[in-house]
């Protein structure tokens, strides 16, 4: 066991527990963005940073395993410095984000949006500067990939690689120009992507989305010549029950 303090209160947690888990176990919520349990613990987005005594910079809570070397340390999860840093991280992400939020497939269900609200981002254009302009990959039948909305959390990459053992997407280029795309920038349709869509459900923003075929359905329904027959899979009802989604 390791004895630490979180926001001044003493706790004892098992060695190897991450700061994030230790906090969660004790009812303290640290916001996260790139972290996806079991598959993506890379400490890249820096939303979950905390202040830790003795550390020369802020620490990403999702990837820091507490060990005997941390005995007695104090961790501040919501200090002004931490909150300011988290906010600035979001502002930086927004400065290179397609801000067409009102027309986005994920509007209202976007993790970036939710975090901005939580952390009080009141100036979405605090940082000005060049934005990347990427082509939208609409090549495959089931989805599109819009890197202009991508925040490089790499959750999709992890889903493809770790859940599915496929790995047809990954980071290309580097630095500001980093883009999550297929090898050599080829179209998704030309890869052995199996169209499972796990990347879509992993994506926190609207960068990845299924191709919307509902207009075709509306059209068919309105066509007096056509008989529309609908079938549904059993699993649909298991996630549809979330009433907050259906108004």
């Amino acid at each position: 066991m390791v004895n630490i303090k979180i926001n001044g209160i003493e706790y004892s947690v098992e060695e190897g527990t991450t700061i994030l888990e230790a906090c969660r176990q004790n009812g303290i919520r640290i916001p996260t963005l790139c972290w996806l349990k079991d598959i993506n613990a890379i400490g890249a987005c820096r939303i979950c940073v905390v202040e830790m005594s003795g550390a020369r910079s802020l620490t990403a809570a999702c990837v820091y395993p507490l060990s005997k070397f941390d005995e007695g340390k104090n961790i501040l999860t919501h200090s002004p410095a931490v909150l300011e840093s988290r906010k600035m991280t979001l502002q930086l992400l927004l400065s290179n984000h397609n801000m067409d939020c009102l027309a986005c497939a994920r509007s209202g269900n976007c993790e970036l949006q939710a975090l901005c609200k939580e952390l009080g981002v009141d100036d979405s254009s605090y940082f000005e500067g060049a934005k990347n302009e990427f082509d939208i990959d609409t090549s495959s039948k089931h989805m599109y990939r819009d890197d202009n909305k991508c925040i490089n959390c790499r959750r999709c990459v992890a889903a493809c690689e770790k859940y599915q053992g496929i790995g047809v997407i990954g980071a290309n280029e580097r630095g500001f120009k980093t883009e999550i795309s297929c090898a050599f920038g080829m179209d998704l349709a030309n890869t052995a992507c199996v169209s499972c869509g796990q990347c879509i459900t992993a994506c926190p923003t609207g960068a990845l989305s299924e191709k919307d075929d509902t207009d075709k359905v509306w059209e068919a329904l309105a066509d007096p010549e056509k008989v529309v027959v609908v079938q549904t899979a059993p699993a649909v009802r298991a996630s549809l029950g979330r009433l907050s989604v259906i108004r």
């Binding site: 890379i42 400490g43 890249a44 987005c45 820096r46 991280t89 930086l92 992400l93 400065s95 290179n96 940082f127 925040i151 490089n152 980071a171 280029e173 580097r174 630095g175 500001f176 120009k177 980093t178």
Partner: peptide
């Protein structure tokens, strides 16, 4: 390009 502070 991995982490936000350095990338952007």
């Amino acid at each position: 390009g991995k982490c936000t502070p350095c990338r952007i």
